[in-house]
Structure formats: structure tokens, C-alpha cells
Amino acid sequence: MAASLVSLEVREQVAWIGLDRPAKRNAISDALLAALDAAVARAQGAARAMVVFGHGPCFSAGLDLSEHTARTAEAVFHHSRGWHAVFRRIRAGSIPAIAAIHGACVGGGLELAAACHIRVADLTARFALPEGSRGIFVGGGASVHVARILGAARMADMMLTGRALDAAAAERAGLVTYLTEPGGAPAQAGVLAAKVAQMAPLTVLGVLQALPRIQDMAEEDGLFVESMMAALAQTGPEAQAGLAAFLEKRAAKAGEG
């Protein structure tokens, strides 16, 4: 892994993955994407949660357009599918991912953030999909995953008009889950990651693997899968210990912890 492009540090079961190309506003080049993929694979084998963040002035300014101009249509197709594969490793992987966002989070950077399960942004964050104004189309999964978060109509507005969302608007739209003061996103993401890392593995499995699939199922199929996951998770050793702690009044009540 190229240490100059992506940093990786594991602390107390949480992997910290940093895009480290600050002079280029963490624009995602082919080399950075490969380094990110390698870091995610290592993190999933060494930690129980990960935080993805950007070094320097912003989270990510998106696709490195300097590499994009010389590609043929066939090359662009396969390049797009490569982005899908890397982001799927995050989205459908074995551990939850939390994005800690500051500054620009646009284009491919927004697609990366959307691949994470929780998004924390500070008040400097700005979100945009500038591909339309550049005469191109999204290629890192936004048409599926960003549209599912924001809704197709809002995404169409962003692509057609170049509209950007500030952090507060992004929170209202459901794109951001937590807001912090400037500079506070990594700390908040770290608190959340530490909490997530303590969750029962079968519960995490259900949230990461079953929940997204249930959204695409017919109602009765989704409810069936929910029942199957409930049966697996609620009979596991971690669940039994957690239920015993609650009944013995050793665990925090819902909403208190």
C-alpha cells in the first residue's frame, strides 16, 4: 500500500483510514483507489470498525479528472466497475464504516462517503455532484446509493444545476447523520466507532448484510429475512449475555447509553 496516498492506523479495534493526497484535495486517482482498497481489506481483518477521513483541507474533491480525459468508452466502463468493487468492499464488508467529513465532499468523494454506513460531518462540509456541469455522468455508484439516500429528484437537481448542499442541508436531507463544530468530525466518528466495535458480531452481520437486501425485497420476503436474522442474533452468546445484563439491571436503558 502506498503510504503517501492512504494512511492506516488501528487503535483499540478501530481502523483509521485517511485519504492522504492533500495537495490534490484528496482527488481519487487510480493509485489512491488501489491503496484505499488495500487499506480497507487490511482494516477488515484487523479491526471491528473503521473511520474513513481526509487529510488536509477536505474529505475528497472526487475523481482525478487528469486521468479521465484519455480513456475510451470501454475503459471508462471498466474503470467505473472498479470503483463499484472497491466501494462494495466497504458497504458489504465485515465491519461498519464511518465517514468523518470536512470541507469538500464532492463527486467521487461523495460516492465514497455514501459507501460508508454512518456519515459525520463538521460545519465546513460541502456536498456536490459536479459531473453534470462537466459533461460527464457519475460512475462510482451515486446513481444507486446517493440517490437512495437523497432521493432521485434531489440528486437530479444537484447534477443538473450544480447545486451544493452545506452540512446543515445535508443533515436535513438525510445524507449526514451527525453534525459537529468545525474540526470535530473525527472525534465524533471515533466515539461512534468505539461504540460500534463493541456490538455483537451477529447484530453487525444483520445490519451490514441483511438490512440492505431487505430494502430491495418484497414485504413478506423482507419480513421473513428479518425473522431469520432475529433467530440467529437473539440466540447467540453475546445476545444472551446482553439480555441477562439488562434483566439484572446492569446495562443502560435504551436512550441512555
Rank of each mutant, 00 (worst) to 15 (best):
V10G: 03
V10Y: 04
R11Q: 06
R11G: 00
R11A: 06
R11N: 05
R11L: 10
R11E: 03
E12V: 09
E12W: 03
Q13S: 12
Q13N: 14
Q13G: 08
Q13I: 02
Q13K: 11
V14M: 05
A15L: 13
A15I: 13
A15M: 10
I17F: 09
I17P: 04
I17N: 07
I17C: 11
G18T: 10
G18D: 11
G18I: 00
G18V: 01
G18R: 06
L19C: 11
L19R: 03
L19K: 02
D20L: 02
D20T: 12
R21G: 14
R21I: 09
R21E: 14
P22Y: 00
P22G: 13
P22A: 10
A23H: 08
K24P: 00
K24E: 15
K24F: 00
K24L: 14
R25L: 15
R25Y: 15
R25S: 15
R25A: 15
R25C: 15
R25T: 11
N26L: 08
N26V: 11
A27S: 15
A27G: 10
A27H: 02
A27K: 05
A27N: 08
I28A: 15
S29M: 10
S29V: 08
D30A: 14
A31C: 04
A31Y: 06
A31T: 12
A31Q: 13
L32I: 07
L33R: 14
L33F: 04
L33D: 07
L33C: 06
A34W: 01
A34N: 09
A34R: 09
A34Y: 05
A34G: 06
A35G: 11
A35K: 02
A35Y: 00
A35D: 14
A35T: 05
L36A: 06
L36G: 03
D37S: 07
D37M: 02
A39Q: 04
A39C: 04
A39P: 00
V40R: 07
V40E: 09
V40H: 07
V40S: 06
V40I: 09
A41D: 08
A41R: 11
A41M: 08
A41N: 03
